[in-house]
Amino acid sequence: MAVFKTLAASAIFSLFAAAAAAQKAGWGNVGQQQEETLTWAKWWTQPLWGGTWMAWTAATLTVFIFVFGAMIVLVALEFRYPGGQERRGVLNLITTRGDRLFLSLLGAVYIFLAWLGLFGMPLWAPLALSIGWGAFCFWKV
C-alpha cells in the first residue's frame, strides 16, 4: 500500500514537473509579445513619440532636419556674404545660392524617383548621382 502511495505521489509530482518544464520551455509564452532587440535599423524606422497622428520616424525627421539645416546655412551665408553669390552658370541662367539648392534638391528627387521606377532598390547609385548633381549645381550652374 505504502509503495503504491509513493508511486502515485511521484507520478503526480512528475506530471507537475513536466508541465512546469513545458511552461518554461515556451508554451506559456505563446500569446506574449517577444522581447525585441532594438537594432539600429529598427530604431531608425519605428514610430517616434509613441505613435501620434503626424507619424514621425527618425528617418523622415532627418530628411526635414537636413532641408531646414541647409536653409539655415544659406541664411547664415547670406549674412556673411550678402548678394546671394549671383552668377550666370553653364545653363545660361542667373542663379543665386538658393536657386542652386532648390535645383539640387529637386534634381535629387527626380533622380531617386527615376531610379526607383526603372531599376528599384537599392538606391546607392542614385544617392551617388544626386550628390554629384548637387556638386555640379553649386559648382557650375
Partner: peptide, 25 residues
C-alpha cells in the same frame, strides 16, 4: 505629415508600420 505617411502603412488608430519606399515604387 504626407512625407511621413508615404513611407508607412496604417490601418487607422495612429498605428504605423514602416514600409520603406514600396509605395513610391
Amino acid at each position: 505629415t504626407v512625407v511621413n505617411y508615404s513611407v508607412q502603412e496604417t490601418f487607422g488608430d495612429n498605428l504605423f508600420f514602416w514600409q520603406g519606399l514600396d509605395w513610391f515604387q
